[in-house]
C-alpha cells in the first residue's frame, strides 16, 4: 500500500474499485484490524487499528470475500454461535436472529446445513451474520461475486435498505454497475495507490463525458474523427469517442464519412475504470 488516503463519512456507502491485486482486500483487512499496518495512520471511529483492535472489531460487521460459514452448524446455529463471540445474551440473540433471517429471506432455512445452501443463500446468510452485532460500520468485500442476477439484486436491495436506515457501509467490488448503483462515493485503486476519488456520476462526467460513440476501427474513421477534432481511444477493433454531443459525432460519422457500424450509448463507470486502469489483463 502506497500513499492511500481516504475518509468515510458516517451514513454513506463508500466503494473501493480496482483490478485484481489493486490492494482492495488488503485495505479492508487493515480496517478490520486483521492485517497490521506497518506505517502511516489508520483510525476507525477515532481509534487506531493497531492499538484498539478489540474495541474496533466490536463495532464492525464483516462480509469477507471468501465464504467462511461454519459447516459444522446449521443456518440458525451459525448465527447463534457468532452472537456469542460478541457477548450478546442468548435471548437477545434469538430475537435478533429471527429478524435477520427474515431480512435476508432465509426464515425457512433455519435448520438447513451450510452445504445444502446455494451460493446466493450463503452470501445472504453471511450478510445476516455481519449484522448480528448491529455494526456501526459494515464492510463488504466483493459481496455479490459469483451470484446470479436475482441473488445479486436481492443483496443490492438489502444494502440500499441498510443505507437508508443510516448505516455506514464500505464495499469493494469489480462490478462497476454495482458500484454505480450503490456507492455515494468511491475510489478507484491500482497497485496499492488511489487513482481517483469522487461520486460515480461526477467521475464519469469528469473523465469520459456524458456519452460514448463507438465505431469500427478503420483508417477512414480515424481520418474523419481527426477532421472533427474529437477525443477518442482505440481498443482493438473499435474506436471509442468520448463526447458530450453524441448526435453530432454520430451524424458526422454516418453521413459525412459514410461509416456503417456506429453506436452511441451513455458513458458508464466502466469506461472511466478502463480508461484509468488500462485494458491489460490482471492475474
Amino acid at each position: 500500500m502506497d500513499n492511500v488516503s481516504f475518509t468515510v463519512d458516517e451514513g454513506e456507502m463508500f466503494g473501493f474499485l480496482g483490478p485484481n491485486g489493486a490492494g482492495k482486500t488488503t485495505t479492508m483487512k487493515m480496517i478490520q484490524c486483521i492485517s497490521p499496518k506497518t506505517g502511516g495512520e489508520l483510525s476507525v471511529f477515532g481509534m487506531d487499528v493497531n492499538t484498539h483492535q478489540r474495541e474496533i472489531k466490536r463495532l464492525l460487521g464483516i462480509v469477507p470475500q471468501e465464504n467462511n460459514l461454519d459447516p459444522d452448524f446449521t443456518v440458525y446455529e451459525n448465527l447463534l454461535v457468532y452472537a456469542r463471540y460478541f457477548d450478546i445474551p442468548r435471548a437477545v440473540a434469538e430475537k435478533k436472529i429471527d429478524e435477520l433471517l427474515d431480512f435476508v429471506q432465509l426464515g425457512e432455512k433455519k435448520g438447513t446445513t451450510i452445504v445444502q445452501l446455494s451460493g446466493g443463500m450463503k452470501r445472504r446468510l453471511i450478510l445476516a451474520r455481519a449484522l448480528i452485532n448491529d455494526p456501526r460500520l459494515l464492510i463488504l468485500d466483493e459481496p455479490t461475486v459469483g451470484l446470479d442476477p436475482q441473488a445479486r439484486h436481492l443483496i443490492w436491495d438489502r444494502l440500499k435498505k441498510l443505507r437508508s436506515q443510516g448505516n455506514t457501509i464500505v464495499l469493494t467490488t469489480h462490478y462497476l454497475e454495482e458500484a454505480a448503483q450503490l456507492c455515494d462515493r468511491l475510489v478507484i485503486m491500482e497497485q496499492g495507490k488511489i487513482l481517483v476519488e469522487g461520486k460515480p456520476a461526477e467521475l464519469v462526467l469528469q473523465h469520459v463525458g456524458t456519452d460514448i460513440v463507438e465505431a469500427e476501427n478503420s483508417p477512414e474513421a480515424i481520418a474523419c474523427l481527426d477532421g472533427l477534432g474529437a477525443k477518442y481511444e482505440i481498443s482493438g477493433e473499435t474506436i471509442q469517442v468520448y463526447t458530450d454531443s453524441p448526435q453530432k459525432i454520430t451524424g458526422a460519422l454516418l453521413e459525412d464519412c459514410r461509416l456503417g457500424q456506429v453506436t452511441a450509448r451513455r458513458a458508464t463507470l466502466e469506461d472511466v475504470f478502463l480508461k484509468l486502469t488500462g485494458r491489460k489483463l490482471r492475474d
Partner: peptide, 14 residues
C-alpha cells in the same frame, strides 16, 4: 479448509 479461525477473528476475539 473451513476458515473457521478467519470467521472468529472478525469478531472481538483475537
Amino acid at each position: 479448509f473451513q476458515k473457521t479461525f478467519d470467521a472468529i477473528i472478525a469478531t472481538p476475539l483475537t
